[in-house]
Write a protein that binds this DNA or RNA. Structure first.
Length: 588
RNA sequence: GCGCCCGUAGCUCAGAUGGAUAGAGUACAGCCCUCCGAAGGCUGGGGUCACUGGUUCGAAUCCAGUCGGGCGCACCA
């Protein structure tokens, strides 16, 4: 209906231009807004206000011209000029109510569209280092990324979900060394744990135990050899980073490549398996887990650097290779290969993004923690330097979540070992509530996550409020046979003209906005828009439910018309909840 | 110091392409079940849209500056 009126407006504008009333050079795309106030009709447009100036007339006069040019009024009951010069459209109720049948016919597919058809989009999210379990901060990225991906799929994109596994960095070696030391302890050694190691994390002990069970004492070396001639650790007045790096080298040399890899892989596999399991339970699954190490193995990092070199954006200074990212708006140039020959993390990321673009995605979406925002310009710079269109990359930054319990802020600290894991959160509040609370705010906003509210099975909890609306429709349907009625959809259809109550009009209008909402939420990567929509829809349903009986004993046509309307409402609630990854319970 | 994000009701937050009287939830006060689930609904008070200036028919929205908060500024990952 909206699109039809917009088409009529385009025709009217063209006519005004053909008549010479409006200069032909004026290019205005007519847009309709859905009105908030029923007295403003169903749709409104402000184009008369926009064309008034080029026409050289008062806005309301321009509106008169436009109104006169709107000759095709099929489906429109009335058009009014209002306020400073708005055109308000009142649509023919019967024409509009056909939507109820569209919803019922489309079922679970209602709200989906094909605007993204034929386009491939990649969504990379979470991508937390595999050095420990996911914590609550990762949970927000997980929930947000998963819903964004599902929304994009719902509007027709071919979506590729990916997790970038940072399995090649220094942190992995600290992890490996930490596991090995705990393993040596488990085998009877007594030692002082490095200050910069994974000291208090319980899972390190568990992995070490499993390692001992699988490998016996084949990874044991004399403890004196491990700690001989190392620089001082932090508590002894040394540098904790120098110390741990020396210890890592010691582990590599004493164990040899093969045995070191055994420890390394044990840690990586155990933690990655835990992360996968955690996310899967949370309803988050990926098409692909992309290994950072594989970039190196396939020579992609070298290729990326060579390609930048060939383009003339790499120079050498102090023994290191630098990428001239300042040429593309970055604050400073960045090292891609250190003086010791090691490529940097940034080099891996250049290679990864190069490879993403080579895979031919039409749109690439990176979802990062907000603390990485400073990283955006250099990645975009690299893509531009490589000759790609950096505008195809969207980086969505997710702000931190702050947990509250009993009105008190829950302290979180990753290094103290007392952090709140995603798994703990899910177990405490449930998967659905966790997901709902994570996505109900704009990603760019800090999130106050009230654990008590998320857990509460009360009207305070917006998720229950929405699900309850769905359950209530189902409850009405259960009542139907108990009262000796059956639902005749066709009979209801013939009585749509009688759905004249303000509650019915409001509910219907809300239903008509669902597809647009899904569309907008998907393209703008803003799932919270759908959350708010569902809240509003549920609210309008509850108000309707309280104000009017559906199961009328003596008016079957109106009863069926209302049942059609609430059946459509139920369908939209279910579809919306489904897009968010949540259930639509029939009973609660 | 430089850069990015943010500032809307007591609190938590919506306000798409600039539009009509800035909205929800919560909290507070009162009301509504002989009736499809009261896990609900209705009514009410509550605002300098941080501040100042600008752009224009019109600004919470766009621009500049100020103040306040968060984050980031590695040959770490």
């Amino acid at each position: 209906m909206k699109a039809q009126i917009e088409q009529k407006l385009r025709a009217a504008l063209a006519q005004l231009q053909a008549q010479g009333v409006l200069d032909a050079s004026v290019a205005i795309v007519p847009t309709l807004s859905v009105t908030k106030d029923p007295s403003h009709g169903d749709f409104a447009t402000n184009i008369a206000l926009q064309i008034a100036k080029p026409m050289g007339v008062a806005p309301r006069v321009a509106a008169e011209h436009l109104l006169a040019a709107l000759t095709d009024r099929r489906g429109i009951r009335e058009i009014q000029i209002a306020g400073p010069g708005f055109l308000n459209f009142f649509v023919e109720p019967l024409a509009a109510f056909a939507l109820i049948d569209d919803i019922l016919a489309a079922g679970a597919a209602f709200g989906k569209s094909q605007v993204g058809a034929g386009k491939k989009v990649q969504v990379e999210f979470v991508s937390a280092n595999p050095t420990g379990p996911l914590h609550v901060g990762h949970g927000r990225g997980a929930a947000y990324g998963a819903v964004v991906a599902d929304l994009l799929a719902a509007v027709g994109f071919e979506v590729h979900r990916e997790y970038y596994v940072n399995d090649a960095g220094r942190q992995m070696h600290i992890l490996t060394t930490s596991i090995w030391l705990r393993y040596l302890e488990a085998c009877g050694a007594v030692l002082t744990f490095p200050a910069n190691g994974y000291k208090s994390e319980g899972y390190i002990f568990e992995i070490a135990q499993s390692l001992k069970a699988a490998q016996g004492d084949t990874l044991v070396v004399p403890i004196a050899a491990v700690f001989a001639d190392l620089p001082a650790d932090d508590p002894d007045g040394g540098d904790k980073d120098d110390y741990i790096d020396a210890l890592i080298e010691r582990a590599k040399s004493l164990l040899g490549a093969t045995r070191y890899k055994t420890v390394f892989d044990a840690g990586l596999k155990a933690i990655l398996a835990d992360i996968k399991d955690d996310l899967h339970e949370f309803g988050v699954d990926y098409e692909f887990w992309y290994s950072e190490q594989s970039l190196e193995d396939r020579g992609l990092i070298n290729r990326a650097i060579e390609r930048l070199q060939a383009a003339g954006f790499v120079y050498e200074q102090n023994g290191a290779l630098w990428f001239k990212s300042t040429e593309f708006g970055d604050d400073k140039d960045r090292v891609v290969r250190r003086d010791n020959g090691q490529s940097t993390y940034f080099a891996s990321d250049i290679a990864y993004h190069m490879e993403k673009f080579e895979r031919g995605f039409d749109r690439v979406i990176d979802i990062w923690g907000a603390d990485h925002h400073g990283y955006v310009p250099r990645v975009k710079a690299a893509l531009t330097a490589l000759g790609f269109d950096a505008a195809k990359l969207d980086v969505s930054l997710v702000q931190f979540a702050i947990l509250y319990r009993g009105g008190e802020r829950v302290q979180m600290s990753t290094r103290s070992g007392s952090f709140v894991t995603l798994r703990e959160l899910r177990e405490e509040v449930g998967n659905e509530a966790a997901r709902f609370f994570y996505v109900m705010r704009q990603a760019a906003q800090h999130l106050d996550f009230d654990l008590d509210l998320a857990k509460s099975q009360s009207n305070d909890n917006p998720l229950y409020y929405i699900q309850y609306a769905h359950a209530r429709v189902c409850s009405v349907n259960r009542q139907l046979p108990l009262r000796g009625f059956s639902h005749d959809v066709a009979r209801g259809r013939s009585a749509y003209a009688r759905l004249t109550e303000p509650h019915e009009q409001a509910l219907f209008k809300r239903l008509s906005q669902f597809s647009d909402t899904v569309h907008r939420a998907a393209l703008s990567l803003e799932p919270h828009q759908l959350v708010h929509y569902l809240r509003d829809l549920a609210q309008e349903f509850h108000a309707y439910y309280n104000a009017h009986a559906f199961l009328l004993a003596d008016d079957a046509p109106l009863r069926d018309a209302r049942l059609n309307l609430i059946a459509a409402t139920r369908q939209v609630l279910a579809n919306g909840l489904g897009l968010l990854g949540m259930s639509a319970p029939e009973e609660m």
